Simulated assay, not measured.
Amino acid sequence: MGQGFGLGNALGDGLGDGSLESPKQEPLRSVHTTSFPKLLNEIGASVLVSTYQAGKLIICRSEGETLNTHFRNFNRPMGLAANKQRLIIGAATQVHEFRNFPEVGKSVDETGRTDACYMPRTSCVTGDIDIHEMALGTEGLWLVNTRFSCLCVLDGWNSFVPRWRPPFLSGLSNEDRCHLNGLALVDGKPKYVTALGETDTRGGWRANKKSGGILMEVPSGEILLRGLSMPHSPRWYNGKLWVLESGEGRLSIVKPDFSGTETVAEVPGFTRGLDFVGPFAFVGLSQVRETAVFSGIPITERLTERICGVWVIDTRNGKEVAFVRFEDAVQEIFAVQVLVGTRFPDVINDDWKLIGRSYMLPNEALKDVAPPTPPEEGADPEKEDKSVKPDALLPESPSE
């Protein structure tokens, strides 16, 4: 595919949900290869990217031959779990769930391009548990609770419900003792996790972050692989276990006997966030700042200039296919999620007028909806009370 470039400008267009520390409102720009929107067109997809550092959800969608990067504000968004019907975002102290109201998209975008419109349904307050990766499994939503070093679920009542933790931990503690961060499901159940250390003290993983990373099996708790450099984003795909060796800036495959990893591609950034479509891997890259957390790891020694963006790698040969690079305000990203079957989605998180007049009802209730009352003769349409006029009455979402 071609490697030409396109240049895009975008400004955040949503209000945040209340931030403990608001990110600076700097210009948000992106540069991309012409092959990036072309690939999205070919696979019929869009890409969601979370950046906790900039406080944004980035929606990457094809607009002809260029890439449209659309920004929505959230309070420290990290983990993402999404499909055509649902979008779930793990933020600083809450988990936000959105549902696709496709009919609302018609009122958002008169051009008819918007083919999915995610509207807020619920928010669950978790407290500051430092949510990292999330995944939708056969038993619902799983969260990596990094603050308490465990896998957990939500029940709508408690802050979280712990389900599993590494056996080398002596108990639950909000001290980020091993920096549990990544989760891979197999057949809809948690199977593999990554952590930055095999430690049981407050922030103990920091002492050997360069090579103290581990890959573990769930639920046995067996450590399958040691000596990794800040591993993230384990994934089971096409019969192989993939992992990002973030400290090395690599996309790798774990050897079947767990004796090590095989490098598929080396990219110019700290790798974190991974999704697959066909033979293509969508890999998140971060610049990583010169802080104590990231100092001394291989990639900061190998590259003086690191890039933030999403790289697309052909897993058959390790070649770069396309990329989008974020500039200025966006320097670190966390999650990358490809939405197949949705080319031009939108997420509504702050248009309260639109949210207030959009409704989703059960199928049975829709049968009982009365036709709208016709306006009085001679009434001025400009003065018509539209406060309860629905933009869309939608049936309940089909099961996924």
Rank of each mutant, 00 (worst) to 15 (best):
G247F: 07
N145I: 04
P395D: 00
D346V: 11
P279W: 03
G137H: 10
N363E: 14
I253D: 00
S35A: 15
D17T: 12
V336N: 04
P279C: 04
K319L: 12
V330G: 00
D115L: 10
Y118I: 12
V186N: 00
I58Q: 04
V243T: 13
E198A: 13
A45K: 04
T201Q: 12
V324K: 13
V312S: 06
W352P: 00
R235H: 12
V31D: 03
L48W: 04
I129M: 09
K106Y: 01
P37C: 11
T271F: 01
H96Y: 15
E198S: 11
R202E: 15
T69K: 07
L339N: 07
E377Y: 11
W311Q: 09
L393G: 08
E327D: 13
A82V: 10
I129K: 02
F294A: 05
D368T: 12
E63P: 00
K255S: 07
K319H: 11
N238Q: 15
K189N: 01
D200I: 13
F270Q: 05
Y237T: 01
S233G: 06
S387Q: 06
E198I: 12
D346W: 01
F148Q: 06
T33F: 03
D130V: 04
V340E: 15
N363D: 14
S233L: 03
S19E: 15
I129L: 09
L87D: 02
C152H: 04
V312K: 04
L185W: 05
P398L: 02
G296A: 13
Q331K: 14
K56L: 10
K56N: 10
N75W: 03
C308Y: 08
S19C: 05
G79K: 13
T271D: 05
Q53N: 11
N83S: 13
P77C: 09
E266D: 05
L228A: 07
V340P: 01
G269K: 08
G44Y: 06
C60I: 10
G112Q: 08
L224G: 04
N73W: 01
L225K: 05
L169K: 13
R235L: 08
G105T: 11
F344W: 13
P398V: 04
T146I: 00
S397N: 01
W236T: 03
V104W: 00
R163L: 04
N238A: 14
S62V: 07
L80D: 04
Q331H: 08
K191I: 00
A82L: 09
N363V: 13
T194L: 01
W205M: 05
R147F: 01
C60S: 11
N83G: 11
A322C: 05
V243G: 01
N68R: 15
F276W: 11
T111W: 03
N181A: 07
D385P: 03
K209S: 12
A392N: 07
K56W: 03
V283Y: 02
K353D: 15
N145M: 06
E42P: 00
S220A: 11
V338N: 06
S387E: 06
G8R: 07
F160K: 02
G182K: 08
G4D: 13
E305F: 02
D391H: 14
P279L: 01
G247Q: 03
V218G: 04
N174W: 02
T66Y: 01
G18T: 07
G182T: 14
D385K: 02
